[in-house]
Design a protein around this nucleic acid. Structure first.
Lengths: 152, 152
DNA sequence: CACAGTCCGTGGACGCCATCGACCGGAGCC
DNA sequence: GGCTCCGGTCGATGGCGTCCACGGACTGTG
C-alpha cells in the first residue's frame, strides 16, 4: 500500500468504471502495471467490490429507518445475526457497544412495510426490544474519505 | 424503467465493472442498446455513481461511530448541515424525525480522533448536544436490495 | 388505408483497451 | 560479481466501446 495504491483506491472510489488505461495515465504507470496492482488490491481485500450507487426512491425504496435492537439475555447473537441477514430490507448491520446491541439501517417502500419489518424483528428469537427512528431525508451517504498515508 | 432496466441496475449493483458486452449477454440485447440504456439510467439519476467499496481498516479508518445530534432551537439547519459537510469523517448524514434531528455515521482512525470530532460537533453553532454510539464491528453495510417491479 | 414521425433496437466499422508473454533494471543476499 | 525476486515497460492480439446508418413496431393524422 504505497502512494500509488492509495491514489488508485481513491480514483476507483470516485469512479469504479475507470479503465485501466485511464488509471494508468492518472498515476503515471503503464496499464499492465495498474492492472496488476488493482488485482492485488482486490485479492488482498482492500477493494471489496464495485457497486453502482442507485437512487433508492427510483427502485421503490422511499422509506429509510434506523433501528436499534436490544438483545434478549437468553438468545444467541449469531442466530440473531443470521435472522437479520435473511431480511433483505436490512441494508447495514452494526454491532454496537451499549445496551442496544445492534443498529440496523433498513430501507422499505412504505411505512406499512416498515411496520411489518418491525413486527418481524420483535418476533425474532433473541430480540428483546426495538427502537426505530425514521429518516426524513438522506443528506448524503457513503461519502468516500480522502485516504491518509499510514500515520506519516 | 422496464424489466431490462431493472436487471441492468441489479447487475451493476452487484458488479459495477461489468463490460457493456457482458451486460448485453446477460439481458439479451446488443451492446449499443445496453450502452444507451445505462446512459439514460445515469443521466436520469437512477444510477448516481460507481464506487469501489473499500475495507475501511485498510485505509486507516478502524473506528466507526454513529452520532445523534440534537439541534439548538436558535440555529439554522442549513448552516449545521454545511458544517457537517465540511467534516470529511462524516460518511453519511440522515435528517431524522424525533428529538435528535440528525444521525451521522462517522469513521475515524482512532478513539482520540473520534473525541476530537465530537468536540468539534458540540462546538458547532446550532448543535445543542450529541450522543455517540461506537460500532464494535460492521456485520455488513450497503447490501444491495433486490429490485421489485413497480407495484405489480 | 397510406403516411410520416418517433422510439428503440440491430449490425458493421474502427480505434482503443484489456491482457498476455517476453524482457529488463534495481534491491537484497550470498 | 552474480543470483534471484519484484515490479515495472514494451509489443502484440483479440475483444470491447462507441459511432453511425439502417429498419421494424407503434401512433396519430389526412
Amino acid at each position: 500500500m504505497d502512494a500509488i495504491d492509495r491514489s488508485l483506491v481513491a480514483l476507483l472510489q470516485g469512479n469504479a468504471r475507470l479503465s485501466y488505461a485511464e488509471l494508468a495515465r492518472q498515476v503515471g504507470l503503464s496499464a499492465p502495471a495498474v492492472h496488476e496492482r488493482v488485482g492485488k488490491l482486490e485479492s488482498s481485500g482492500v477493494i471489496r467490490a464495485y457497486r453502482a450507487e442507485v437512487e433508492p426512491e427510483s427502485i421503490g425504496l422511499g422509506v429509510t429507518a434506523l433501528i436499534s435492537i436490544v438483545e434478549d439475555s437468553g438468545g444467541d447473537t449469531d442466530d440473531v445475526l443470521e435472522a437479520f441477514r435473511r431480511m433483505p430490507e436490512i441494508e447495514s448491520c452494526y454491532f454496537m457497544a451499549g445496551v442496544e446491541s445492534f443498529l440496523l439501517k433498513a430501507r422499505v417502500g412504505t411505512i406499512a412495510e416498515l411496520e411489518q419489518l418491525i413486527v418481524r424483528l420483535n418476533r425474532t428469537p433473541g430480540v428483546a426490544s426495538t427502537r426505530t427512528g425514521i429518516a426524513l431525508s438522506t443528506k448524503w451517504e457513503n461519502r468516500p474519505q480522502t485516504i491518509e498515508p499510514p500515520t506519516a
